[in-house]
Every structure is written in C-alpha cells, then in structure tokens.
Simulated scan of single mutants.
Amino acid sequence: MSHYLAQTDNPVGSSVLFIDTNASNPALLVCADQRIRAVKNLLQCLSLISASSSDPHVLSGVCEASALLLQEGCDLLGVLTLREDKVH
C-alpha cells in the first residue's frame, strides 16, 4: 500500500484528496466515525423536511454531501481493512 491513497470520490482524472495510509488506526477510525455520524445527522435533518415544502436544490445538496461523506468514511475503513488483510 502506498503512503497516500487517493480517495475514490476524487473527480475522474484528478487525484486531489488522499488518505495518509501511515496514520494510526485510532486516527483513521475517528475520521471515519466523524464522517459517518455527519451523514447520519444530515439524513436525520432530511427526514424532518416536508416533501411538499422542500426545495429540490436543498434535497440535492443534502444527498450529494451525504454521498461524499459516506464514501470518505468507507475509504478510511477500507484502509483499515487492507491493513487487517496484510496481518492475516
């Protein structure tokens, strides 16, 4: 595994955001947890919005932010999974 792993939500042909694969397990877990909890909070807010009164742009923005944060959380957990696979 290289020192920096490009996140999968980078635009095609552009690797701008990376994960430091040498970061400690606790640091990776805290970052993944933060992103997954943020998605949970966004979705909770979304559940409170009335379908008839919601702006489609707001809905689209919440969905996009949720997808990006969830993908980042999954990427961080993926680094931990790769580490675990190397150990066994």
Rank of each mutant, 00 (worst) to 15 (best):
M1C: 11
Y4R: 11
Y4H: 09
L5T: 02
A6N: 01
A6H: 03
T8K: 09
D9N: 06
N10K: 10
N10S: 07
N10I: 01
N10D: 05
P11Q: 13
P11Y: 10
P11T: 06
G13A: 10
S14P: 00
L17K: 15
D20L: 10
T21S: 09
T21Y: 02
T21L: 09
N22E: 07
S24A: 04
P26I: 03
L29E: 03
V30K: 11
D33M: 14
R35I: 01
R37F: 04
A38S: 04
A38P: 00
A38L: 11
V39N: 04
N41P: 01
C45M: 11
C45L: 13
L46A: 09
S50C: 06
S50F: 02
A51G: 01
S53R: 13
S53F: 07
S54W: 15
H57E: 12
V58K: 11
S60L: 09
V62Y: 03
V62W: 01
V62Q: 05
V62D: 04
E64D: 06
A65C: 10
A65V: 10
A65H: 11
S66L: 09
A67Q: 09
A67L: 11
E72V: 06
E72M: 13
G73Y: 12
C74E: 10
C74H: 13
D75M: 12
L76P: 00
L76R: 08
L77A: 13
L77I: 12
V79Q: 01
V79M: 02
L80E: 01
L82I: 10
E84D: 08
K86Q: 15
